[in-house]
Amino acid sequence: MASSAAVDVAGAGRQQALDGSNPAVARLRELIGGHESTAGWSRCWEEGVTPWDLGQPTPAVVELVQSGTLPAAGDATTVLVPGCGAGYDVVALSGHGRFVVGLDVCEAAIHKAKQLSAAAAGGDVGSNFFAFVAADFFTWEPPEPFHLIFDYTFFCALHPSMRAAWARRMADLLRLDGELITLMYLAEGQEAGPPFNTTVLDYEEVLNPLGFVITWIEDNEVAVEPRKGMEKIARWKRMAKSDY
């Protein structure tokens, strides 16, 4: 059970931006210990230090679902949410002709996601529409690639040295005709991370060489208050190899 101090830190994290002035982020960096270890992230979940966790679906996800612009082709459309945490976005994206896999390296996060999704469904975990998997994004091998991948507070949580590998895995895990949606948290002025300093160019530098191009990008107007003005949402498609 988390200490009262840890609970207070976690609570503060939901009211402030994801930077070093936030006590939850400062504690997060202590627990991670300067490297992206599974043990470090697990300690964050065990202590309840999850400042990225909104406690609800991301408003931009709800808006995307309501927009009717996401791919949906019966039960055949598959979606991946890497670094899914407590799984709110997984559940929000599911149904509507989409089966969603929430992936997280932390067993504690996946356990919480299963508990919350079951409670929200009144005991029915909705296995026809979503599933949660505890595995490493960089080594996990699904049975087939996905139609859609949604990334939020995952790219910026990775050390910049891992971003090229992140992009390669996105290419491996996405169908050639699939779509990548990145909700970008554009942190700046950080001396450490996570979250690490991030720009749109950082995404382009690792995705463009693999054929990914932005087809649509705009400011996230429905960002939660502490993150307003710091987020953009982009949709990416891959060009034919002959075009790059």
Rank of each mutant, 00 (worst) to 15 (best):
residue 66 Q to P: 07
residue 66 Q to Y: 02
residue 14 R to L: 03
residue 57 P to L: 12
residue 21 S to A: 13
residue 31 L to W: 01
residue 63 E to C: 01
residue 42 S to T: 11
residue 52 W to V: 08
residue 42 S to Q: 15
residue 43 R to A: 15
residue 70 L to A: 04
residue 16 Q to L: 15
residue 23 P to K: 02
residue 58 T to W: 03
residue 35 H to Q: 12
residue 2 A to F: 04
residue 2 A to E: 12
residue 30 E to I: 13
residue 28 L to C: 10
residue 32 I to F: 05
residue 21 S to R: 06
residue 44 C to G: 08
residue 51 P to Q: 11
residue 28 L to A: 04
residue 41 W to N: 09
residue 43 R to K: 13
residue 48 G to K: 01
residue 65 V to S: 00
residue 15 Q to L: 14
residue 59 P to K: 08
residue 61 V to L: 12
residue 37 S to P: 05
residue 27 R to K: 11
residue 13 G to R: 01
residue 42 S to C: 10
residue 66 Q to C: 11
residue 23 P to I: 05
residue 42 S to R: 11
residue 1 M to C: 14
residue 62 V to S: 13
residue 10 A to P: 00
residue 55 G to H: 07
residue 13 G to Q: 00
residue 10 A to T: 04
residue 63 E to M: 02
residue 24 A to H: 02
residue 66 Q to W: 00
residue 9 V to P: 00
residue 45 W to N: 13
residue 44 C to A: 14
residue 71 P to E: 08
residue 54 L to Y: 03
residue 14 R to E: 05
residue 35 H to F: 13
residue 52 W to N: 07
residue 14 R to F: 01
residue 69 T to E: 15
residue 65 V to L: 11
residue 39 A to Y: 02
residue 36 E to H: 09
residue 53 D to F: 06
residue 10 A to F: 07
residue 57 P to A: 14
residue 51 P to T: 11
residue 65 V to Y: 10
